[in-house]
Every structure is written in C-alpha cells, then in structure tokens.
Design a protein around this nucleic acid. Structure first.
Lengths: 260, 260
DNA sequence: CGCCACTTTGAATTAGCTCAAATTCCGTGG
DNA sequence: CCACGGAATTTGAGCTAATTCAAAGTGGCG
C-alpha cells in the first residue's frame, strides 16, 4: 500500500512513532470498550430502565422540554442539536452506544438541545431522580455517571479545538478519525463506516459549508486517505485510521513538531 | 450620537422585543447569582476546603497531572487551555467566581487541560473523594455538583455554536456579551470590563487571528457598540449589553427572523 | 420511469489570514 | 522623573482558503 503522494505531504513523523501511537490507541479502545460494557451492565442491573425504540429522525427529547430523564444509548446513533434564540441550529455532539444524553438539561431544568436518532436504535430511559437515588447506595453507578459527564466535557472541548485550530480538510479528516475511533471503542469495524449524515449536517457540525465538506472528502479520497465504495457516497472506507491522524498533524504549520 | 450605519445594519428587531429580552436576562442573572452564592456556601460549610491564593499566570493544575482534586473559584478569573498531542494550544473555557474546575480530569484520571489564573484569585481545593463522600449524605451538594457539570456542558456547546455559526465580528461581540453576562450574574458592573487577555488569547479562544480580533473591536467601537477608555485598550466600555445581543442576531442572514 | 434530495464540481467572490510597518503601552533602570 | 526597550496593539496591503452562486450529475424510491 505504497502511496508516495501521502508520505510526501506529511511532515517528518517517523513510521515508528505513528505505529506506537496506533498501539496506544488500540489499548485505549479496549479499555474504553470495557467501560462501555460496564456502564450498560450497571445501568441495567441497578436501574432496570425502560427501553424505548426510536427510528431515524425521531427525537428522544427536544430543546425546551422539562428535564426529568437521562438516557443511555444501547444501540443506534444519535445527534444533539443546539438551538439558539435567533434560530441558528448547530449539531453539537454525536452519541453512540454506551453514551449518555440529557446532561444538558440538569442545570437549566429543561433540555438545551434536540436529541435525534440517526437510525433505528434503543435508548434506556432513566428518571434522573431514580438515578440519584440509586447512586446514593451504589458508588460505582455514581462513578460511571460522573465519568460520562466528564467525558462529554472533554469531547466538547476537543470539538471546539478542532474547529478553532484546523483547516477544513483536516477538520473533516479528524471527524472521520473520531467516528472511526468511536466505532473501534465499541468493537465495530472501522475500515468501512457509514456516515448517516448529509454533507450539510457534517458541515454544520464542523463549521463549514456542505460544498467544502464535499470538496474535502474528494481531496482526502484523491490522497487515498479514504475511499468511496462503488455504491453510495455515504459509505467511506478508511484503509488506515492512523494515516488520518498523521494527516491532521501534518496539516498544521510545516514545523509544528516538538514543544521547544 | 446618531449613527445611521448601525441602525440600518440591524434587522427589524423591535425595541420592545429587545427590552423584553433584557428583562429576561436580568431575572436570569439574579437567579444564577443566588445559585453561585449557594454553591460557595454549601462547599464552604460541607467541605471546609483548603484555600489557595494564585497569582496571574500561575496554574491551578496542568494537563497530564494525576486527577484528584476539584476546584471552586472564590475570586479571580481563570482560563483553561487544552493541549493536543501535536502541540496545539487552545483556550477552551473561562471561569469566574463560583465556577468549578477539574471535571475534565474525572474520566481520564488525569487533567486534560491547564487551568491558569488570569489575575490574583482564590481557589478552594477539594479532594474529589471528599466531595463524593459528602455528597452521599448531602443531596444538595450533589445537586450543585451536577448542575455545575451540566452548565459546563451547555456553555462548551454554546462556544462551539458561536465559533461554528457566527462571523468574526459577531463572535467578538458575543464574547464580550458573554463576559458581561458572567460579571452581571456575579453582581458586578458590566458597563466597563477589563479583558485580562491579549488579542492573541481572545483570538485563540474564538478561532481567529489576533489581527482579526483587533479589527473587529475597532469596528464594534466605530459602531458605538463598545468604547475604549482613554487609558489602555484592555478596558472596554459596553454602553448597552443588549445592543451586542441585537448585533449578533443581526449579523446573520438578512432575514433570520422568526421560525417560519 | 421520473422525481427529489443529495452530491459534486466549477467559477467568481470575499472574509479572514499573512506579512509588514507604525504606534502605544508599560515596566525597568538610570 | 524620564529614557529606553520589549510586548501588545493597530492598521494597511495583498493573498488565500473557504464561501456563494450556479450547473450538472447521481442515487434512492415511490
């Protein structure tokens, strides 16, 4: 899988370093995978949640709804959309199996965004009161709850960082990398992912227009970092996720390199 | 001071609507102010925290440090700076009196950012273990803890939304509006605020260059939305915060208006 | 088969960036 | 107290990445 174009474009990141990173990531994935399993097990055992099937396009909750429930995703894929007073809509987060939704509603007392299913999935509905009550006697449950909130804060900040500091192509690459990592953590294949979002939605999430998303994907494909399946351009093949990571790093100033 | 350019630039937002919004915001400020006081009271009473004075430029914690403490700010002003593997630095949050810091460290077990004082301030140091222990018997404490995390999630998403959907000038205006609101919630004057950040830092936070920040501020000043004090351009006078809100709304497509 | 939503690509435009120079601010030391 | 020097800011000029506008092209589905 020789690709001179790519390696030329990249800064002097050694193959060894890249490989080490990949190994690191794999270990991280496994750890997180276990944590996800633990979350689902704990929630199921301690809270016997009500299960709710949602189909693509249906909302789990909507901005302005009175807060009362938290949700744990057992399957499917969800997006959260913030609404501003002046009518702007913004995809602010993507959620996968094992993730929680609804934290945004705790402080204000009503949800701050729409939570929308992007394909058929199952959410577990938890009364927030019940969660708190259970946490009082199950420290492990409180721990995973806090970890989930902490992770969400960290992820939101990573998103902000990506939008603020990366050029369009790298942002798209980082988005694909994030999606693939999310799948990997859940034990799913990452060599081929199905984006259940239109170019417009991706662009909204990444702070760019749909045309720019399309062009960036085309450029990434031209550089062999991704490939489109013959049928449908919603499916993206990623031959090597770590190449995406390297591409993002390489997109910065020619010599970002080490901290001096 | 007549300024046709400004009023012409604004969309048909009625004065009545703007005034209603301002009243709404004032009520919200008062409510939040009480919540901040409650947080400080609860933490002080229930946890008798260790107090630590930090001076401008000192870090409360650093990215990579082992997680163990949460921090509640009693005074001063702090920034949180995310560091990426490839060396990018990004201001991801600003923190004021009553805010918490350290949530980013819970899930990964080490802090994900630097927390840096922007002037002299006092942080209350809380062992996370001790917080959890206290929460077990004090539901009110757990409630404020979760509200703080929830608020942080909401704020981070608002930041993302601002960066993704607003042009540079509006982003700067929204930043000033946010700063003024944060002060108002703490009962401080908002007609004049002292930005303890360089143009470069503001730009980093908002995803633009320092030159663009400078130009945007100049344009806002030219439109009378802000004014610089004769001494020092770090101080910004904001004659009317709600005018900033209107400006942000007006910066969108000529007719964003109501949801059709 | 044909419609409609989505995607791709091109061409022209522009907001914001880069580079550069001048100015102001502020702390420090004489 | 004032002169000096470095850092921060402002502003201009030109450039570029990304946007807007426009026109095909493609795929899914009734």
């Amino acid at each position: 899988m020789l690709n001179p174009a790519v390696s030329n474009a990249l800064p002097p990141v050694t193959a060894a370093a890249t490989a080490a990173r990949a190994t690191e990531r794999a270990a991280e994935h496994q750890r997180v995978g276990q944590e996800i399993a633990e979350v689902l097990r704990l929630v199921q055992e301690q809270l016997t949640p009500q299960r709710r099937i949602v189909r693509a396009g249906e909302t789990v909750y909507q901005a302005g709804d009175a807060f009362g429930n938290l949700y744990v995703l057992n399957s499917g894929l969800f997006k959260q959309i913030n609404l501003s007073a002046d009518g702007r809509e913004q995809v602010v987060a993507l959620k996968f199996r094992g993730d929680w939704m609804g934290f945004d509603g705790i402080a204000p007392g009503h949800y701050a965004c729409d939570a929308v299913a992007m394909d058929t999935g199952e959410v577990w509905v938890l009364r927030y009161d019940a969660v708190l009550a259970a946490c009082a006697t199950r420290p492990a449950l409180l721990r995973v709850l806090h970890e989930a909130m902490s992770r969400e804060i960290g992820r939101d900040r990573d998103s902000l960082m990506s939008v603020c500091s990366l050029p369009a192509d790298a942002r798209v690459a980082d988005f694909l990398r994030y999606w693939a990592d999310s799948l990997a953590k859940r034990g799913l294949r990452t060599d081929q992912i199905t984006l259940r979002m239109t170019r417009a939605e991706i662009g909204n999430y990444l702070g760019m227009t749909l045309e720019t998303v399309s062009r960036s994907l085309s450029r990434l494909a031209r550089q062999q970092l991704i490939r489109f399946t013959e049928k449908g351009r919603r499916d993206v093949q990623i031959p090597d996720v770590s190449a995406l990571v390297a591409y993002v790093q390489g997109s910065l100033a020619p010599a970002p390199a080490a901290l001096q």
